[in-house]
Amino acid sequence: MTESASPHPPGADLNRRDFLRSLAGLGGAAVALQALDQLALDPEQAVARYEAQLQELIYAEGTHLESLDVLERMRVELHRALEKSPAERRWVMVIDLRKCVGCHACTVACIAENKLPPGVVYRPVIEEEIGTYPNVARRFVPRPCMQCENPPCVPVCPVNATYTNEEGIVEMNYERCIGCRYCITACPYSARTADFGFTYTQGNANADGLILGSDIADSYERAPNFEYGKQYPRQPGRSSPVGNARKCHFCQHRILNGQLPACVTTCIGRATLFGDANDPDSLVAELIASPNVMRLREELGTEPRVYYLV
């Protein structure tokens, strides 16, 4: 039906529609606010309720996961994958470049999750300019560790401090690493960075009672990260991971606790997707089979587990 065929004048129709939409929006906002309020008042209960709903979804027969938000779907699939033995899982990441808006939320979330110090970054977002003026386009390419099936960084390590675990994630053994940085030179994606031992607040003044000096202000960056299921508080001195090579590990510590990697949950455009490629029904398995998939520097034969949709 065309606008001219409408029994009501266009203005009146729009007004009513807008009015109804506003009401719905307000209602939705009120519900959301109520939920947030409830979460704030009793976060444990809210999380427990959410987890219970998730469990229902995981074990419910015939649930159409396609109808869920992709984050919900990925969490359900993640839980299902975790029920398998580690060797049966094959974690992959899919990044939809058409949806990435270059907000860098994933980079920031990764830094917050892993308490990354200055100079260490696991997931920068490369901004590419394609063409020349006036025919210019921009593209954003997040670059986590590719978790290669043939990782060039692994065999070059002289002390076996980096290796591929059963699930295909390339891990670091911080306590064993001697800091030769050979793995950094060998990675074709520059996905490893060296931890030179900086902190954000170093050099800031201290004056008890007058200012919130670095001794107190840096407590947030002294808190431990949970990489590889351990705790690494950033204490003064040169203890690991200071002096080591560091890299993205798909937030393995989160995965094993049933949580998606931090970059996935924070992606505002649902552009970063994660899951078990060995599950034929998973979202990622479906996506990596599509024809518009590419991987970075495939000619090197590294077989990355990070796929890009273009």
Partner: peptide, 13 residues
């Protein structure tokens, strides 16, 4: 190694 990486996340290191 990857064009644009050096400006993707700016830090002296």
């Amino acid at each position: 190694e990857l064009k644009g990486l050096a400006t993707a996340f700016v830090d002296p290191k």
